[in-house]
Design a protein around this nucleic acid. Sequence first.
RNA 1: GCGCCCGUAGCUCAGUGGAUAGAGCAGCUGCCUUCUAAGCAGCCGGUCGCAGGUUCGAUUCCUGCCGGGCGCGCCA
Length: 656
Amino acid sequence: MGLIEKQVAAELAEWPGFRSRGLGAEKICENLVRPPKDDMGDLAFATFKPAKEAGKPPAQLALELVAGRDTASISKRLRKVEDDAPDVPSPRAALVVAVGTAGPYVNIRLNRAAVSALLLKEIEKQGQAYGNSKAGKGRTLVVDLSSPNIAKPLAVHHLRSTMIGYSIKKIRESQGWRVVGVNHLGDWGTGFGKLIAGLKKYFPEVEQRAKAGDEQPLGNMSVQTLNETYSRFNNESKGDDDLADAGRSEFALLEQHIEALVKGEQTAAGAVNFRIWQHTREISLAEFERMYAHLGLSFHLWPVVDLQLKKVLTEESETFYRQHCLYVGESYYVTAEDLCRRIIVDAVENKVAEESEGAIVIYTHGKDKPPLMLVKNDGATSYHVRDLAAAIYRHRHWQASELTYVVGGEQKWHFEQLFKALDMLGHQWARGCSHTEFGLMLFQQADGKWAKTSTRRGTAIMLEDLLDEAIKSVREIMAAKNPELASTPEGEAVAHAVGVGAVVFNDLKAGRRNNVKFDWDAVLDFEGESGPYMLYQYVRMGSVTEKYREAYGEPDFAAGDAARLNLDEEWRILKLLADFPDAVAKASDEYEPSVVAQHLIKLASATSTWWVATRDSRIVGDDRDLSLARVRLVNAIRTTLGKGLTLLGMSPVDRM
RNA sequence: GCGCCCGUAGCUCAGUGGAUAGAGCAGCUGCCUUCUAAGCAGCCGGUCGCAGGUUCGAUUCCUGCCGGGCGCGCCA
């Protein structure tokens, strides 16, 4: 409950009706609800629970509670409370101005001037910190986000994990948490054996260069080509045992080599594969970087080796983790602290794991459910081991009290197994692990049915194409609506921010569990509940502030009289501003950015309604005092909207 | 077959024990000499998948069923 509710509850607790029934501020606060319609009141005290405890009908209790306030016959109309009522001793008891009952509810009307003054002052004081809390102070969350596979391009569906994760990171940070964003790169596994075998088969020069010691044996090969090479080899190796074996042995060589490296040794055959693999990773990261830069994310390879960055990390680690996320490839755990091997040995020695059909597995959910596989029957470790290692590493290294994985819902079973296995291995902290699952990105096929797509099969839409297309659409609209801005460098930056913002907002506005039916028309629709609409309201607030400056100079908020804000449209906005911190807290608790997005939609919509409602009187008009009061509201909207958009990973713009 | 997620207006989604279930899009009607109309107002549109149960009260919780999606040992 926010600032206003707390004060209202404290005030009501002083009323004889509440006090004599033992209803203290806390109890009142618990039962304060929002009336469904604005004209019913600003807040309501629901009497259901207290009435049950008192053993009387709710409607009767409601009448009794306000009895001292309204001796006339009680109707559904709200009745004015006497300001000088003798039984209201608290000096700040000025928030509630009218009460009335409607059946089981005590409806409350608030003193708009008092609430407005209180709230505007608060937002002006807090600025960009408005909505922050200290709920997670001293605690660390590690969030697993994006996590694409190397040698594959970033497709539209990667946007979900990336932006949901990034937004959660921002939101948690606002609640006082230290958040470490980890990009768990898919850079290990038998698939890379197939890729290497394919490269050797179709591009013999790659192997030649690698043998010669060239650190960049792939030349300027694109990620697209790497992906196609994998697909081609994978298809050909189906039903061709020799090729399939070749793929497996190439990976075995790679794995042996990286294990030897830990001991400071080298293997000749493995070194070739290692060079190819490393260059594959470099090429992929270079492409990922470009996408992440578009989206406003920054990643660094872990462990950090760059001296400058290392300095920031040790001296200002809070800042470092706020500004940067990390790439920690799966391959890291093959070598780091020998974790993978130790996990397997541990699990076997403690009889948590057992042998089955030539593999080493853990039955996490009983023998009749598929087990979690540690080692495959060909001796290669499975990704489960690396996930166990990653979890242990994250908990240990960052003293994380919570780990969450922003990964599609189709992997739910994997994470249930993973967390259970951690628990079985004696890691009680596994209870702080969660899977922030999200729905699939579905695409309409020729037969009209919706299905998920695959980069391997080439049916996916590339993230870059989507972003480019969105930015292009924005440019076109801007050229028509704001031509003088469109042709400037600032205009290009704005087109970028608005286009990317449109895509991001579109992805975050609905609950994350919903499947997303990808639809070009919907993504590129910049009207209604869209990113550009949010930014547009923000821009309007900026330009009207500018107009005030031109007319009256720099606004002195302290001199603005909040009591002048007496339009219903203004009151509606103020209530939404007051609720913003609760929305952020809820989004944080539930790992659900859409809670923030939905709140912003309401705020932006109320703002737009107000904008039009003041068409005649103007927000900034001839009445200087009224203009100043309104500019205070404008400032509060701008602050809150800007903060909310930032929490969603978007960049507010001043003009568009 | 088993497990998980989802089912709310023509479409995409909010709401999740409480007052008359809300938005956007699409369709129709209005509104730009003014601070950006990427906007605003209005109309149209609902047996909250179906059937039971718990409750003073269920779209919300429980059970069963129906429909859609996803997953179900050696891909990650």
